[in-house]
Nucleic acid binder design. Sequence first.
DNA 1: AGGTGTTCCTAACACAGTTAGGAGAATGCG
DNA 2: CGCATTCTCCTAACTGTGTTAGGAACACCT
Lengths: 210, 210
Amino acid sequence: MLGTPSRNRIAERREGVRREILDAAWSQAREVGLANITLRDIAREVGMQPPSLYSHFDSKNAIYNAMYAEAWLAYESCSAAELDPLPEHPRVAIQRIARVFFDFAVADLARHQLMNQRTIPGFEPTADAYAPAVRVLEHGAALVRSLGITDPADFDIWVSLIGGLIDQQLANDPGGDRFSRLLERAIDMWADAAGVPKHSPAATRAARKN
Amino acid sequence: MLGTPSRNRIAERREGVRREILDAAWSQAREVGLANITLRDIAREVGMQPPSLYSHFDSKNAIYNAMYAEAWLAYESCSAAELDPLPEHPRVAIQRIARVFFDFAVADLARHQLMNQRTIPGFEPTADAYAPAVRVLEHGAALVRSLGITDPADFDIWVSLIGGLIDQQLANDPGGDRFSRLLERAIDMWADAAGVPKHSPAATRAARKN
DNA sequence: AGGTGTTCCTAACACAGTTAGGAGAATGCG
DNA sequence: CGCATTCTCCTAACTGTGTTAGGAACACCT
């Protein structure tokens, strides 16, 4: 009965409040735009006075920082789920990775701005918040290497291509699919140049043998 | 001797002050970042009190707006100069267009953020400030069409590819050339897929005949 | 010279993030 | 249980931002 320090209680409650604040921040970000969220509005949504938020976050940027880490962790688990049985054929696999990242980014403008663009004036993620991002990128690079892409330049071009399509989609056709539907074609173009085996039935059969 | 209304004088001086303000805004933007410029600092650099700026611009966003128009006009005249004798060979021409745009964007981070990213919270260019931008884009599209690219999707991919490389260059290797040196290779990849004739001596000779 | 408009000024406001300091509740120990 | 401690939230206030109101000085035109 004794010996279990109730330090858990307090930590749990604290974590709960943190969650509430972050949820309010996300909802505000989606409502008024990532850059336009205000501590006053977050506090109102949580039922606090603005300065009380400082009991849980050191600053507004600390909130952005937590959101940043959260976003990349979310993508990490999303991609782990969506790419678990990675398609055997290299070209299909690379298409799938690109598609998963593209759809994740396009699904939430505010999140994408936070993750991939430098849209918040004074904000820069701390090292530990940045860690999941580099983990994801390094994992992607390793994946692409394992599919036979030896030249790192090819990886850089691949990343640029996907990022460019995402930006164009969100900037020029938000909610539509003008650029989304070009993704496969663009990646195929890249795969041809990078020497990824064509996706013919014969090639697929050959690949299955491994 | 008479009949020349001195309305010119006053208009000229007004235009001069506008120039001073915009120059100060650009210099501040390059110094502290586009989003971090402040009316107080601009006013100080011009030798005014902050509210006096309102005699020349309706708001801070109006300054951004003028800078936006200026940036695109600058690119328009830059590209007109750099692309005047457009290389005859389609592939070389398309490489050159991409290179000119890439270098112009990478040369000035603040300007690129203003022109091509939505990095200023409340700012959206007015129709007349936006006009040069659509003119440039439409001109580019027409140019690409004239080089034999019939599918608009190819143009969209081309734009995405260039934009993606620019963003990566500025975000991950500012001042370097990690992505800049991949531009030609990436555009060649695209040109292969889009069916732009290869750049062989024979093809060049054939193209010269037109 | 006198009337007129333009341009700049000072004073002040609203709203942002943030800090200081204290009250009250939850927690931990005798 | 009673007391000390810590944690959480509050109110009041500060700094810095864009912006508005209203007036003074200057250049201009007749």
